[in-house]
Design a protein around this nucleic acid. Sequence first.
DNA 1: ACAAAAGTGTTTGCATTACACCCATGG
DNA 2: CCATGGGTGTAATGCAAACACTTTTGT
Lengths: 245, 245
Amino acid sequence: MKPQKIKNISVDCVVFGYNTLEKTLNVLLIKRYLESATTAEVLVDDYVLTGYHINEDETLDDTATRALKELTGLSSLYKKQFKAFGSPDRLLNDKDQIWIKNEGFNSRTVTIAYYFLIKTEAVNLKENKYSAKWFPVNNLPELGFDHEAIILEAYEDLKIKCLSEPIIFELLPNKFTINDVQDLYQSILGIEIDNRNFRRKLINKKYIIPLDEKQVGVSKKPAQLYMFSKDVYDKIFEKNYLISI
Amino acid sequence: MKPQKIKNISVDCVVFGYNTLEKTLNVLLIKRYLESATTAEVLVDDYVLTGYHINEDETLDDTATRALKELTGLSSLYKKQFKAFGSPDRLLNDKDQIWIKNEGFNSRTVTIAYYFLIKTEAVNLKENKYSAKWFPVNNLPELGFDHEAIILEAYEDLKIKCLSEPIIFELLPNKFTINDVQDLYQSILGIEIDNRNFRRKLINKKYIIPLDEKQVGVSKKPAQLYMFSKDVYDKIFEKNYLISI
DNA sequence: ACAAAAGTGTTTGCATTACACCCATGG
DNA sequence: CCATGGGTGTAATGCAAACACTTTTGT
């Protein structure tokens, strides 16, 4: 028997992916398209976050994990529930109303929003059934529902979180250069960082481990590769209580 | 006409209050009590967070604000939505099931949890219709539903948040001593802080303003009183991008 | 005068910032 | 040999941490 959907509670997923070559932070969005059955007029044509209404027997985390699994084929990604959105008018645009009627959901749906961090190269979008596509977080397409607001809040949370937790490495390949990490911080935070100071800082961390390997296939001096060791990080981690107000 | 309640979505409020004299961080809880109509047997006797199911025409923030207003008579308190709880088995204890049947809610309710910070002395519990009572966050009574878990997560969030934002002053009277602030940090974080270093740090902040006033009615040397100026804080605030991973 | 809590300075080390040039490699 | 990006060192500053005694007041 099919599990019962709860029609007024959903989970939406902001999937962040970093493109190491273009140095852009991207969000994975799916196409929303609907034509009138009679006139072939285009009724809805935009993008939305991936998301599902929750099932009766499912935790919120489960729903989010399921959504990502179906979108990307991947599980055990970094995931964070960051906020619930429940304004009564969040789905009341004309387009959204048409869409909702078509899908049979409740127009007063509260959504629990998650964000995911993902190594872009791990996703194969070629044979994706949702026409999923990456968009730079700073240059989003037209979005349905209140999804633009959701993405921006996820992004704010990510900006803060990446300063104090080593989640940045979720967005990079397993082997990376110090400059990759710097570029990524710069993309996320929108700031410039001094390269010498940044290198020193990172290289001094015991959980940033130099490999016996250098870049290959680059047309200039190949850079030293490093990996991040979560084990070492967890071992040496200690909470600090620095009050900085 | 009465607004329509949504039976499977609620808001729960963790209300933190600090007792300056006892130096304890407390949570405001309400009594949950039910006797069997026939045998007078006590069916439910414990405490829960204050919370409401949301109305059709209400934002989540509105519901939270309404709950606090009815509980304490106060509005415009510091409020933070910190997490949604939606496990399918979060309300399945026997006691909880009895209670839910009595109240007519859905056993699969997702709750959006908020926490509030409040100056304890601003609340008058004497004539409170909910038998609300303060409990130390480190010594909670028996709690219904999953409310203990909710309180603990709120507390974790508060611990982190108070390190980087000046929310601590929401828990103190308008006029406070430096040692009050230190005691409060110590209560929240469960650590000891060096008094000389802490004083220097605080007194150097431009938004900690010394008043032409000292404590009165204390039986020892009266301390200098200070106030917190949010205006000054907002003016001099600047985001820093210190990466500390 | 005594008890209790308020208040006060200095030193040391560490982390952050600012800053400019040489090096190694592939083409 | 040259263009490109990788990689390197030092000095100045500011902040945090450690640490113990004197002062003020009310009783």
